[in-house]
Amino acid sequence: MVGFRSLKALVLGAGLVAGLGVQAPALAAGGEIHLPDTRFSFDGLFGHFDRASAQRGFQVYKEVCSSCHGMHQLSYRNLRDLGLSENEVAGIAATVQVMDGPNDEGQFVERAGRASDRFHAPFPNEKAARAANNGAYPPDLSVIAKAREGGADYLHALLVGYEEPPAGMQLGAGMHYNKYFPGHQIAMPAPLNSDGQVEFHDGTKSTIDQMARDVSQFLTWAAEPELEQRKAMGVKIILFLTVLGGLAYAVKRKVWADVH
């Protein structure tokens, strides 16, 4: 799952951008957009995922985002990597109904989801998704954190950037003002619209900012779950090359010590 998803991120990025009609944040109409630096736990050379935050982020996705956005590249069993138990994962998967088959009679039957199933899609196809969203197509969120310039900072800013439009600005029909969205007009209404919208299982206060941070953490993990291993390997390689360089220099000094 890890390698496959990372490889496809580059390919799917362009399609996801086209799906929303999004350009890079720095190329927004009317000037450059400066994203706030959210400072996530996974930033920096020694960064790591905050699994408690990512679990809360999955809860936000499940209760808010999943009604419109799918995450087809993830299976429910992947949630074990966030620290969820097998029973918890099985319980989450069992809340959805999937079509399975054909059986011995050649029929497709509906059954409860299993841990091995992909995340349940909210719509059967793109046309159904557009019909339910006034023509806009909600993209799959599996690699959205890799497909947007700014990554998690952009996702967080987008979710907290809804506000009333400036005086004199005319919004298009069905559009909403967002100060961090390119062009500032977005078809998606504010998904996080009030504090306490999601009641976190761990008791964390669910402000709009907290929910946006947590779901951004979860979406970054979903797009790049191997990030911690990659950083750990990078540190090891740097240490190895540092030691190797020191040894090579010491050998060079020893070999050429008598040459003037």
Score class of each variant (00 low, 15 high):
V143L: 10
A129L: 03
A173T: 15
Y249R: 13
L20T: 03
N133Q: 09
A223R: 02
F49Q: 01
T242A: 11
L241N: 12
N193W: 12
A187Y: 07
F4T: 10
A132G: 08
V22P: 11
R80D: 08
A18T: 01
S194A: 15
V255S: 00
K252Q: 12
A232F: 13
Y177F: 13
W256Y: 14
L84F: 10
F218D: 00
P189D: 03
D195T: 12
A152L: 09
E105R: 13
K231Q: 10
A212F: 01
H156F: 14
Y249Q: 13
D117A: 07
W256K: 15
S41C: 08
R118P: 09
T95S: 15
D202A: 04
E228I: 00
I238Y: 08
H48K: 15
Y137Q: 14
N125R: 08
H120V: 06
G91I: 06
N78R: 04
H120T: 13
S206T: 10
N134I: 12
A152Y: 10
P102F: 02
Q97F: 11
A223Y: 01
M188Y: 03
N133R: 11
Y61F: 11
A28Q: 04
R253N: 05
F46K: 15
R39K: 14
P191C: 01
V22D: 10
S41T: 04
E224G: 10
M175P: 02
H120P: 02
A250T: 14
G44T: 04
E226W: 11
A257I: 12
